[in-house]
Design a binder for these strands. Structure first.
Lengths: 223, 223, 223, 223
DNA sequence: GATGAATGAGTATTCATTCAT
DNA sequence: GATGAATGAATACTCATTCAT
């Protein structure tokens, strides 16, 4: 008969001041958190935010619902964390690659603009592949959730900055006037082409599109 | 003796044969249908498919829920119709523009490749503006619903074909090798840049980005 | 971002493979399940399947709607379970009674055919009394739901078999030729007379009808 | 935009004072009414009261919903009328048959009790066949609607009276003591056996069951 | 710390009935 | 007299979240 108070209603929409549960210090706890985040990331990307129910996430992670709520205040927060981690990973990939390109230039003394652009086009595609589906869910969320938007904006700016950094290094070999704007254009165009390839995997000649895309970037950027 | 309602799970995956309620012939009915579709398109783009509840749509359209269901078998179908109409409008804009560009070329005898590309970059942006937000919802839906995917694929192909048509006319003034792949690249890149501008309206220098984008297309396409 | 509910049409016709939620092992859970089933049985028999809304059942059971759905996948399944349990109870009553009649015969060595028939007529009436109203709802459901039909058919066959078993024991004292057909006739006739009495309780002379009915059975069966 | 008042909620449950729309005198109107009733009877028996929606009935009858409501105040009333007509038809069949049996006895001077009973068992089965499914719906309705119950009770009494009349004529050749109670028993047993045969059509040996049933009645009734 | 039973507001959809045209 | 567009209360079912054990 035991009636319980029960709570309902969706999560608060706006909210920038998410009282994020602090990263646990205990090792076991940290591992639990990790397993939950991995399960959540999988499910969010497989079936989207809504269809990835907390029950499902708990099951996939191998814990009870209660445990989920011991580690995250709510589902939205889990998504935000997954989002943040994912964007950080992608950014890292980009930064490491650009570091390498710049180092190569300094070491070899050769201005391989074409090679750098090739890497941007092909390499970034690789970086994005694993979580391609998550992308869609991310962007949708970003449109509806201020904090997600803020998180995304932060990483996007950093990515743009990296591309600007790369272009600045090759400044003399480049014909672009407004590097800032160009970085945005390149960044965005890249993204969409990747998404297109992911969505139509197997139905489009990936090589042809990618090489055509690289050609476009080269003819645009390289002197 | 009462009614018995149930539940149908999420977007039905299969169904290519949506038993679309036939377009009404009566004038009053046609107007109602239009009002509902307009309200639905608004709400879908404002708040996404899920949050745009049927109750909300009905209220916005100025009718009762029952009326919604007299005109559409279910919410998904409404979305599909909105999607189809939106894509058709965008396609028409593109086609009309390309018709005009080609006519101008024939009449003037001048190969204004740059002007044509400029139009692609700027004009399409205009075409997309009104329902920019709907785009995201569309793409998400497309990932989860076979029929939405089919509808989208149909219009996308037609749009690609138009761009190919345009490029073919200017064939001699163009340095692109694989016109098919190039059309895809241009089409996709265009899309994303537009979406970026919509999302960051007011925060980015739209003119700079657009002109940089046009520059990229020109340097890529024009001989 | 909200949930999305749908509609499932009426009783699904097909499905013999009802994914019955497994009988709970936890004690609390088992008790909850029982309370829900009892409430459901009450309401189904009081007001029929349709008018017994899930909300009403939950209220009567003293739980929330959510709990109902934690224990049963849907309302139909609850009915099917109630049906199965009810038929099992009735069958048990019949079997125990027949066991006793047969044991008596063996112990006493007397062939009290009349007494056995009397029991069939009167005793079965007692067995059916508690859920008499449920009967009607059952039969209606059976006409519309394949699985309900299968469940009912299974128990009916077992009941027929019991009657055949009884008659076989008294074979020598019986003038019936086709025992199988006779069992059906007796079984069915019995049922309807009971239902009539239940429905017209207080308006008909129950004793007179029952004794007349027993007389009919006796004159038909006993040599 | 035109909001209309709309009405909803189910029909009043209790209500014995149904303001029955008077039988129309105009010929066209009478024909319309008949077509509606026929369509309704078909659908009620095919799919039950609830699933036979007014829209469906209108469509089947070849009229608009509005017309339905010009002839009947509500759906329940339609059912009640269908019920009444059906029970009247069945009763007539019984009365005519019994008239014939009695006439035969007077003409021939022979007391063919066995033949009379045979007719009761087999003939009534024939009479019930066409609307067998309606039977179930009827009985369900009768349990939930006072007026339906009253209508049914009226015809049932008249049928019982007919059986009593028949038995009284054959009084001397009959061993039954309480003719009233016997009539009920015979009547009810008959009903259920018919229903059983209808439900299990094709799976049971109809002849065997019917002849066994007739045998039961004979051994019970005939001296 | 962990568990999972319980909560209940929220959502899509149906259908008898009304009434303006 | 007929039509059928419009109404809206009613109903099954979901799922984020709580909290007693």
């Amino acid at each position: 008969m035991a009636k319980q108070t029960g709570r309902s209603g969706r999560f608060a929409r706006g909210g920038a001041n998410r009282p994020r549960i602090k990263e646990p210090i205990q090792k076991r706890s940290r591992e639990t958190r990790r397993k939950i985040l991995d399960a959540a990331a999988d499910l969010f990307s497989e079936m989207g935010f809504d269809r990835a129910t907390t029950t499902l996430i708990a099951k996939r992670a191998g814990f009870s619902i209660g445990s989920i709520y011991a580690h995250f205040p709510n589902k939205r927060d889990m998504f935000l964390t997954v989002l943040d981690e994912y964007l950080e990973r992608t950014f890292s990939y980009l930064r490491v690659g650009i570091d390498r390109l710049i180092a190569q230039k300094h070491e070899s003394g050769i201005d391989d603009v074409a090679g750098a652009i090739e890497w941007l086009a092909v390499g970034l595609h690789e970086a994005n592949k694993p979580n391609a589906k998550l992308n869609w869910e991310m962007f949708r969320f970003i449109l509806m959730d201020e904090e997600a938007d803020a998180i995304h904006a932060r990483w996007e700016q950093k990515e743009n900055a990296e591309i600007v950094r790369l272009m600045t290094v090759f400044k003399d070999r480049i014909k672009v006037r407004d590097i800032e704007a160009a970085a945005i254009v390149i960044h965005r165009a890249t993204h969409e082409v990747f998404q297109y390839l992911t969505k139509n995997k197997g139905e489009v000649d990936e090589q042809a599109v990618l090489s055509e895309f690289a050609a476009m970037l080269k003819s645009y950027v390289a002197k």
